[in-house]
Amino acid sequence: MKLLIISDTHGFEQELLQVKEKYDKEVDMMIHCGDSELPSNHVALVGFQAVKGNCDIGNFPNDTIRQVRDVNLFATHGHLYNVKMTLMNLQYRAEEVGAKIICFGHSHLAGCEFVDGRLYINPGSFHLPRRILERTYCILEVKETEFNVQFFDHMHHRVESLCKTFSRKEE
């Protein structure tokens, strides 16, 4: 199963539409981790499982839980869990909801890590990245034996330094 994960687009509606159109037929699910700064019914967000960021107004849920293959995915923006300081609050919430994949934004820091059987993914910012130059999003492929996380820049080129594969045997 393949998922498109993006966050912190901050009003970039045309750019979000382009990413959506590129992957619409290639992915099984699209997730926006908040701060789209678009109305929840905006055409660029149609088809996304979108959550509310600290810069969003309107009818978005704060969090969402979705079944991905055989695991739960938990998506949130992160501001309500203080992710700029620690992932501990996010970890506690993931444990509460039984999530093995946790997607979040807010910090504008792209990256992924596998800790205690859980995959944490921050797709970075498609508008104002921090610590790297590339405006990023990612594609997560959930396979029977592994999680494959590929990061791409706004021109759809792989950002090799961020891409990782994790064995699910560690779950």
Rank of each mutant, 00 (worst) to 15 (best):
L4Q: 09
L4K: 10
I5M: 15
I6N: 00
D8T: 04
T9F: 09
H10N: 03
H10F: 09
G11F: 02
G11A: 03
Q14F: 00
E15C: 01
L16M: 09
L17W: 10
Q18W: 01
E21R: 08
D24L: 15
I31T: 07
G34D: 01
S36C: 10
E37W: 02
L38F: 10
P39Q: 05
P39A: 13
S40A: 15
N41H: 14
N41F: 11
H42M: 04
V43W: 01
G47L: 06
F48W: 10
Q49V: 15
Q49C: 13
Q49W: 10
V51F: 04
G53P: 04
G53K: 03
C55E: 07
D56A: 11
D56I: 01
P61Q: 12
P61V: 05
D63P: 04
V68P: 06
D70H: 01
V71H: 07
F74P: 01
T76E: 00
G78E: 00
G78P: 04
L80N: 08
L80V: 10
T86R: 04
Q91A: 08
Q91C: 06
Y92S: 06
Y92P: 00
A94R: 10
E95T: 10
E96R: 12
G98W: 01
G98Y: 00
K100H: 10
I101M: 13
F104I: 08
H106C: 11
H106K: 00
H108S: 02
G111N: 06
F114N: 14
V115Q: 11
D116M: 11
G117M: 12
R118A: 09
Y120R: 06
P129I: 00
R131N: 12
E134I: 00
R135D: 07
T136K: 05
Y137A: 05
Y137F: 15
Y137T: 05
C138M: 14
E141L: 09
K143G: 15
F147D: 00
V149F: 15
Q150W: 09
F151G: 04
H157L: 12
R158D: 04
K164E: 13
T165C: 14
F166Q: 10
E170C: 06
